[in-house]
Design a protein around this nucleic acid. Structure first.
Length: 339
DNA sequence: AAGTCTCACCCGACACGGTT
DNA sequence: AACCGTGTCGGGTGAGACTT
């Protein structure tokens, strides 16, 4: 049904226009705005858009770059995003949470674009009445790690920017990297593939030089990074989810093994709800113990996890894992001998 | 290098239809 | 009748392509 234009439509269209206009130095032309509006269902001529821009710029801090045609329209750099109350309480809260928990994973450019929204979200939440349910929400939500909490290491701001830009635009990087336990820097030509945050630490997944195997570079050990014009050579079969599933983040070789272990029942309780793998099987051994089998990546992470149960678990298979733990326990026993 | 042509763009003027 | 929002038209303009 082709509705006649009404005042209502005009208002909505101009509001939508304000949202389409980017912040300086980005800009958008009247023609582009017209096209974008058309896809949003506002079918008007460019002339109307031009008139709208002219009248909107009398009220809002908009500027047009008239050095060349077509003119480019932007919000002034310092403008508060949308001088209309467009950020609802829920949105403000969402921005706040993004800022708190995802800042390390977002492209630098995106973060810079979002900065005014983060500011606005903070203001918005601060102006809510004390004890408002939205304001209280951010005091009711925390993401915690199941391991011992560690303070996040410092990541060089420029490195963060270069790496995220390279990742975003699929560009190669020259990184100078300080391997753990080494004083000297090594210089690598890196093909960035992914960013992974694991607990307090953020890793860059990349291949180096012409090698095909992806490996992990801890972001905080990258001392400098420079972006190149050359495009990344991305291994055809690289898949971030498979990479993680293979156990890369446990720092092992990630070979899948059949784990078999005898747990004291209470220790295995949570495995019913959060199994180790799809093929996990739990069978009773006696009144107090169960046998757990599952196919998992054989990584140090697995060993740490098992060790965390102390004497509430006995690893049966694989033999290598069992031997490793046995050796560790013997050494511990020796260390704690009464003297 | 200078002149000409073409094109896209901006913007003022006007007409039209709907609302107040 | 006055006003408003919009589409249409055409003049002025500047950039780039083309010609001389």
């Amino acid at each position: 049904m082709a509705a006649e234009p009404t005042k209502h439509d005009t208002l909505l269209r101009q509001w939508q226009m304000l949202r389409l206009i980017p912040r300086y130095p980005a800009k958008i032309t009247a023609g582009d705005i017209c096209d974008r509006l058309a896809t949003d269902g506002f079918k008007v001529t460019k002339r109307t858009v031009e008139r709208d821009l002219a009248s909107l710029s009398e009220v809002f801090p908009l500027l047009s770059d008239e050095r060349e045609k077509p003119f480019g329209w932007s919000w002034k750099k310092e403008a508060v995003p949308l001088d209309v109350p467009s950020l609802g309480n829920g949105e403000a809260l969402a921005f706040k949470l993004i800022e708190q928990y995802l800042a390390g994973l977002l492209p630098h450019a995106t973060l810079a674009q979002l900065a005014p929204y983060f500011r606005m979200a903070g203001q918005r939440l601060n102006t809510l009445p004390k004890g408002s349910s939205f304001q209280a929400w951010s005091d009711k939500i925390r993401v915690v790690q199941p391991a011992q909490p560690l303070l996040p290491p410092k990541i060089d701001a420029r490195v963060q920017q270069m790496v995220s830009d390279a990742l975003l635009f699929d560009r190669q990087l020259v990184v100078r990297y300080q391997k753990r336990g080494e004083d000297e820097l090594r210089e690598y030509l890196a093909h960035p593939l992914a960013l992974i945050q694991r607990g307090a630490i953020t890793y860059l997944v990349a291949t180096l030089f012409d090698y095909a195997d992806p490996l992990l570079l801890a972001m905080h050990r990258i001392r400098s990074a420079d972006i190149l014009d050359e495009r990344v050579h991305r291994p055809k079969d690289f898949d971030i989810d498979r990479y993680i599933a293979k156990g890369a983040l446990g720092f092992g070789d990630g070979k899948l093994v059949k784990l078999e272990a005898i747990f004291y029942e209470p220790a295995a309780e949570h495995l019913y709800e959060t199994p180790l793998s799809e093929d996990q099987v739990i069978t009773p051994v006696d009144d107090t113990r169960v046998r757990v089998t599952a196919t998992v990546a054989n990584t140090p992470q697995l060993e740490w996890w098992l060790m965390g149960f102390g004497d509430a678990v006995e690893v049966v298979k694989p033999a290598s894992l069992m031997e490793g733990i046995r050796e560790m326990v013997q050494n511990m026993a020796a260390q704690y001998q009464l003297r």
